[in-house]
Design a protein around this nucleic acid. Sequence first.
DNA 1: ATGGCTTGCACCGCAAGA
Length: 271
Amino acid sequence: MKITTWNVNSLKVRLPHVLAWLAAHPVDALCLQELKLTDDKFPVTEISAAGYRSFYAGQKTYNGVAILVRDGVEIDDSDLVRNIPGFEDPQQRVIALTLDGVRVISAYFPNGQAPGTEKFVYKIQWLAALQEWIAGELQRYPQLALTGDFNIAPDDRDVLDPAKWEGQNLVSPQERAAFVALTGLGLVDSFRMFEPADKHFSWWDYRMFAFRRNAGARIDHVLLSPPLAARCTACEIDRTPRAWEQPSDHAPVTATLADAGDSQIPMAGGA
DNA sequence: ATGGCTTGCACCGCAAGA
């Protein structure tokens, strides 16, 4: 099973990119963020023609999340969830459903603007609500993938110049503590299972030739619960679409899971 | 250096992103 997260920064503008990328990378689940459109404008027909079912929670102008599921993947949408249960919020930032027994969550974490602002306060409150909800979800769904634009660079390897970033939005101690709280629930940063080096990014500012200079940050993540981490064989950031015409400022990040019962690790005492 | 791009909205300059 392959699960991808991609902040597309307007699905209206990026639909051709999404379709082209899916044609080359037929992943099982594509989690999208920043749709920036209402549900009535969601391109269900085009995505269906590409062989994917659409589940989405949109709103006008801002936010909006979706999960595109490849035809043939078993879907249980009886427990489809939009937004964080119990957390009153008009902003559409979360959608979750269950695929082949795997709880897949597409989340668009608040940006936060800057520490000390109202938006930062909202970000911290949202993070606390998310953590509480995820703790419960892990009880119900041992196989869980929390994917999305986290708007958090987990450590100093995840920005180009840590000294310049110190204390700022995306890297502040409060945000990083929230990320550690999620990993404290057992979730594993799948990218770091395979790549210890610094300067691997998933987002680059549109300005100042940031992509060309690799002046970015790693803020898009696929976090896996322990049973899924045990099945994970790769996590890759695809920089290719960032170089396309009129790109999203984020790159897709894909985690690959070996089939259940098809572990890469040889079984002790096997035949 | 609070700029620098890009998007949506709405009516042409603004908010928001990260």
